[in-house]
Design a protein around this nucleic acid. Structure first.
Length: 433
DNA sequence: TCTGGGGTCCTAGGACCC
DNA sequence: TCTGGGGTCCTAGGACCC
């Protein structure tokens, strides 16, 4: 059993295997050994693959129309993204983890860091990892892998090994420095957390090919030739934690809502409808985080992949005189930005709304140059109206909406392979006969 | 026919100030 | 001939993550 110094930090990274594909399979036992892929919004490209699909060589991010032949030849099951389902399954996984570990940092929809500092006085890291894996599988039905190490970057690497080498049984304790070096020597540098395509190309050109070579590179060189980011990564590979643990998630700095349209739009009125919808959704998220937006940005663009068609792409932003979380205000501002940008004669493929300069409720500044009487008349009415809208819409999606959003959505997504809402809709509950 | 959506952090460079 | 230096703030763009 590996041991670490008293008080030395230890993290576990728990990561669901092929998360979206596993969620789909969970409710379709008939697909147990069938290759499954899940598509991005609008059924565009592959964003998740079951292990059978990976074995067939289906690549991450490939447009689905490029793999039509394989889909037919191998009987690959295709699903549209069902974020309602994945979000609900994610919540169940995270709840289970929170019951097992004292401190949990939910990092993304399918992974979380656990703080295991000091836990080896009671149970070995390896045994704890197996308990996590088994409990999640028992409670939720989803397979996970667990990597354990003194830094998050090494925990990521441990998780990579747990996934890649079946002999590990899906759990790797990487607290032992000698074991860290042995693993790093076998792992390509591009697998290191924080090293993407561009960086790995530059590193390889310098002869740095493995994770271990990166760990052993002079820190000052990394900082000088790259940046502090890569220097920190190298430090973390050497077991020195550089990312502080945060119990309270940092407040968001921007909120975005954007979507490609199911089919190209030409008319201003259709774009107005889409932009109103995006602004409404973004503002809901804003209120969910108890924040106000000080800035609003709107963009529209044609399809850059369609090289033969005339291209057009514009964005515009406005600083609000007073930060707001009122859908009426932000939808109106978004329309004001959209109309002057719009040009006739283009096939618009995508639009979006971004909220920035976010402030907490308590930090809202009164407008210095507005007469008190002009500021006062609302008197909290906006907050109350929005709260009522949110309450109603939480119970039943989109019961109350802005007038601009009305009508059958011309911008609606393509989702031709959508699975039922097994866990969030009574009518879609799976039946056991 | 058909290529996602939503984030974060860092750096370089320009404007501006004294 | 010789044309400062240091600081801040903002923005755009690039890199990364899932």
């Amino acid at each position: 059993m590996a041991s670490v110094g008293r008080g030395q930090a230890v993290f576990a990274l728990v990561d669901c295997n092929n998360f979206y594909a596993s969620c789909e399979k969970l409710f379709r036992p008939d697909l147990r050994n069938t290759p499954v892929v899940v598509l991005s919004n609008n059924d565009g490209c592959v964003v998740a693959r079951s292990k059978e699909a990976k074995a067939l060589g289906i690549k991450m991010g490939v447009p689905v129309h490029h793999i039509k032949t394989e889909i037919n030849r191998y009987g690959i099951q295709v699903f549209s993204s069902n974020y309602t389902l994945y979000g609900d399954m994610s919540r169940r996984v995270m709840n289970t983890l929170e019951a097992l570990a004292p401190r949990v940092d939910v990092y993304s929809i399918d992974e979380a860091f656990l703080d295991l500092t000091g836990i080896d006085r009671v149970v070995s890291f390896e045994d704890f990892g197996r308990e996590v894996k088994n409990t999640v599988y028992q409670n939720v039905g989803l397979p996970v892998c667990v990597g354990i190490a003194p830094t998050r970057t090494l925990a990521k690497l441990a998780n990579f090994a747990a996934k890649k080498y079946p002999a590990t049984g899906g759990v790797v304790d990487l607290t032992d420095p000698a074991r860290q070096r042995r693993l790093m020597a076998r792992v390509p540098v591009e697998e290191v957390w924080g090293v993407g395509r561009k960086l790995s190309a530059r590193l390889q050109a310098m002869g740095i090919v493995t994770a271990l070579q990166l760990a052993d590179t002079h820190l000052a060189t990394l900082r000088k030739q790259f940046s502090v980011v890569l220097e920190r990564t190298a430090r973390e590979l050497n077991g020195v934690p550089c990312v502080p643990w945060e119990d309270v998630p940092a407040p968001k700095k921007q909120i975005m809502c954007s979507r490609s349209f199911g089919r190209p739009l030409q008319k201003l009125s259709d774009l107005e409808e889409a932009v109103a919808h995006f602004a409404t959704r973004a503002t809901e998220k804003l209120r969910g985080g108890q924040q106000y937006a000080g800035e609003l940005m709107v963009f529209i663009r044609t399809n850059p992949f369609k090289a033969t068609a005339p291209q057009y792409s514009r964005s515009a932003s406005v600083k609000l005189i007073q930060p707001s979380q009122d859908s009426r205000v932000l939808v109106q501002q978004a329309q004001n930005l959209l109309r002057p940008m719009y040009r006739e004669g283009f096939d618009y493929a995508k639009a979006g709304v971004m909220l920035g300069e976010l402030v907490e409720v308590a930090g809202v500044q009164e407008d210095l140059f507005q007469a008190a009487a002009e500021q006062a008349p609302d008197n909290g009415r906006s907050e109350r109206l929005m709260a009522v809208m949110d309450t109603i819409n939480r119970r039943s999606r989109a019961t109350v909406y802005m007038a601009r959003e009305a009508g059958p959505a011309a911008y609606a997504m393509r989702r031709e392979h959508l699975s039922p809402a097994y866990t969030t809709c009574w009518n879609d509950l799976p039946e056991v006969r």
